[in-house]
Design a binder for these strands. Structure first.
Lengths: 226, 226
DNA sequence: CGCCGGGTGTAACAGGGTTACAGAAGGCTT
DNA sequence: AAGCCTTCTGTAACCCTGTTACACCCGGCG
């Protein structure tokens, strides 16, 4: 179904490509929830059934979008002199790609394509972490730790980005904390002031990822000595 | 609107509490998307408008649910002898609570209540990190790094949990990697085998969080010296 | 007694995904 | 050339969603 292998009969009003492009545009503009088959048809000046003809389904349409977007993740190559900075460069690149397609993670999540999506970066990470001297299960844990950290970070970022009006914002909450002097445990006013400031996501990512990677690639075993 | 302060006239068919409880049940069972006002009304044996009378809105209803659930996050207390293990215990507790309410994060996210939700844990983390010797901006960065890490980890976990059928599972992908010997960079077969195994989330969380916290609380400054 | 107001129900609106069905138009076979 | 077959489009409907205008019931109060 959907196209087959024969040639086009009449000159089509829309093509599968046009539908996919318009859908991409809609998703990028209004999010996944903003993609409706009727809106799509209206934007293309076409009846809804034509959409259904070219891409069979809303699910299938999203599937296709995800497949296309995921291919943008293949070109991740590390850079830097030592393994630590190379792993960090991979993490930074992965975050950048994920941030550039904010709806990608959600889509991939709904479609259950997460493993396939992250295989390329997983492979690159594995190579660098092997080069750093880790092997076997230790290396696998390090790979996954970095992956989870980066993906999770972007997910949190996306969450905070998507809610423009925070009822009691973190800033307000911590400024209230500053007002009431020392009844709770907020003794360090500099800390409270810093927590009242908005998050510098770039810097935070650099710091936390750097700390994680350095600790993971350190020679000492991951068990703590009290 | 919605109740006011007067006494009940006739014996009401449903109460605000009953609506909230039924809604909680529905959300826990079928997720946020599974909560529809009509389903809710049907389950309570009542017309839709009654739902609207007691809780004004779907948004308001979800708001209320979130408020109730968030209060379950207040009781997080650290345990352990040294700051590192105490911070780790906070991280573990936060992850446990979040995992126990899988829909909580999504709800809170949609409602923009994330800062309020995580203020208690933020406060506890700040206290422990201060006790570890960090101050001011450094301490704030550490607090947020741990927070982002834990929340992100749970988000990733939730994502992987919610998709039961992964088209090409990570296991299959890495086993295919094992079959083709050394054309790509997958030299370490033990690593590939480890990556082909399913993720042990508990262990991974312990390892990655431990590494992160230990690196963050280490005396050396977070800037890397190339 | 009549009025007021809390609480409920009926029915409708707009907007979503999806599809049964009819039709148009070119390519192909006979 | 006639006719069928396939591709593609449009109309109209079905069922779902959130939401609301309106009428209604019924206990308390003046």
């Amino acid at each position: 179904m959907t196209q087959g292998t024969a040639k086009a009969a009449r000159t089509p009003a829309v093509s599968r490509r046009a539908v996919l492009d318009a859908a991409t545009r809609l998703v990028e503009a209004q999010g996944v929830a903003g993609l409706s088959m009727r809106k799509l048809a209206a934007e293309l000046g076409v009846a809804v059934t034509s959409i259904y003809w070219h891409v069979g389904n809303r699910e299938a349409l999203l599937d296709e979008l995800v497949q296309e977007m995921v291919h943008g993740l293949d070109a991740l190559s590390p850079s830097g002199p030592d393994p630590t900075t190379r792993v960090l460069s991979l993490a930074v690149g992965l975050r950048r790609v994920l941030r550039d397609h904010p709806h990608l993670i959600g889509l991939v999540n709904e479609r259950g394509l997460t493993p396939a999506m992250f295989l390329p970066s997983e492979r690159a990470l594995a190579a660098e972490i092997t080069a750093a001297g880790l092997t076997g299960a230790r290396a696998a844990e390090a790979v996954r730790a970095v992956q989870y950290h980066v993906i999770g970070f972007v997910l949190v970022e996306r969450h905070t980005d998507r809610s423009p009006e925070q009822r009691p914002s973190a800033e307000e909450l911590w400024q209230a904390e500053l007002a009431a002097p020392p009844p709770a445990g907020a003794a360090d006013s500099a800390l409270a002031r810093a927590l009242a400031a908005p998050v510098d996501a770039d810097r935070l990512f650099e710091i936390s990822t750097g700390a994680l990677v350095r600790a993971l690639l350190a020679p000492s075993p991951p068990a703590r000595e009290t």
